Computed example of a mutant assay.
Amino acid sequence: MSAQLEETDITGKEVRGPLIHRQSAWTRVTHWVWAICLFFLLLSGLQIFNAHPALYIGQESGFEYDNAVLRMQAFNTPDGPRGRTTLFGQTFDTTGLFGMSGPEARPQFQGFPGWATIPSFRDLATGRVVHFFFAWLFVATLFVWFLASFLNGHLRRDIVPRGEDWQALPGDVAAHARFRFRHGRSYNPLQKLAYATIFFVLFPLIILTGLTMSPGMDAAWPWLLDVFGGRQTARTIHFIVMVLLVLFFIIHVVMVVAAGPINEMRSMITGWYRAEPGTPGQEGDRP
């Protein structure tokens, strides 16, 4: 990282890149609110999933059906109970993680283990209260972010990929694969594509599929059921998007560490970012 943010001039003196104000207060605040919301949404969502740990495509569902695309259950065997996960007809022994978890003396027979849910014990009512609270906080924060980002130009400047971004994307992917990062004023093409996918595809999908699972919203907006092919399909899409967001979070953290955690964290806490030498703008410049 230091080799990219510092270079040596002809006299042998180290020259540091300019410190620029890269992230607005709106971006920083909403970023951390989303992080908190998604944490509670994930763990409370797994609590809700455990009430019926199976996913279906279409309208029909239930314990008496054998049409699940994903099912986590516990089964009695000659050697005792075991946890099993069935995915698209393929069954895996997932004892200790999915279907059956916890200590051998007091096993938990549920989809996801208690340490991964809020609350850590079976309490669907509390899980739903927590989930709905942070879901609406998430939606409100997303609305604020879209409004502020539209007005201050962040959406157009840093999120929506342009023609030159698409042209530079293959080279940027190759640079990321070699852990070579550009520390500039704006986001690189891969960042823009990733953030645009999150904001314009995954976030709307997880919100709309969540609304589709609500009988009240189905009565008000019956077209949601037609768009997503039924409540059970919406539940499956909701789960898949959750998995994709978790994967994005993991990759996001890895990239932050690889690109320089101090510089990246300072940017999202204070707004100030150390760019590469030669980046347009002087020390303390505010775009």
Rank of each mutant, 00 (worst) to 15 (best):
W136K: 03
P161T: 09
L137H: 03
L147Q: 09
P170D: 10
R162M: 07
F134W: 05
F146Y: 14
D172P: 02
V144R: 02
A148S: 15
Q167F: 06
R156I: 10
L169T: 03
A174W: 10
F146L: 15
R157C: 00
S149L: 06
H154T: 14
Y187P: 01
F138H: 04
A174Q: 13
N152I: 03
W166G: 01
S149Q: 08
R157L: 03
A177Q: 15
R182N: 08
G184N: 05
A135K: 04
R185L: 14
P170V: 06
Q167D: 14
Y187T: 09
L147W: 13
W145D: 10
L151R: 15
P161A: 09
Y187L: 10
S186R: 08
Q167P: 07
L155S: 05
G163R: 05
Q167C: 02
G163A: 07
H154Q: 12
F179I: 11
N152L: 04
A140S: 03
E164C: 00
N152S: 02
F150D: 05
G184A: 13
T141W: 08
A175N: 15
R157T: 08
S186T: 09
L155M: 14
L137E: 01
V144Q: 05
S149T: 11
A175Y: 11
A168V: 09
G171E: 03
A174V: 12
A135G: 13
D172E: 13
F179H: 07
Q167E: 14
F150N: 13
F181G: 05
L142W: 10
F134E: 02
L137Y: 03
H176I: 08
A140R: 01
A177D: 14
D158T: 04
A177K: 13
L151H: 13
F181H: 04
R185Q: 12
L137N: 09
E164H: 09
L151K: 14
V173C: 15
F143E: 12
D165G: 08
W166E: 02
L169M: 06
R185M: 12
A175C: 13
P161F: 01
S186N: 10
H176S: 05
F150Q: 11
T141K: 02
A175F: 11
Y187V: 06
V139D: 02
T141Q: 06
R185Y: 04
F138T: 03
F146W: 12
H183A: 07
P170T: 09
L137V: 12
P161W: 03
F150G: 15
L155N: 04
F134H: 01
V144L: 13
R178S: 13
F134T: 01
F138I: 07
A148E: 14
F138D: 00
F179T: 05
H154K: 10
A174S: 12
N152D: 15
F138S: 04
T141H: 02
S149V: 08
L155F: 14
V139K: 02
T141A: 13
R162P: 01
I159P: 00
V139Y: 00
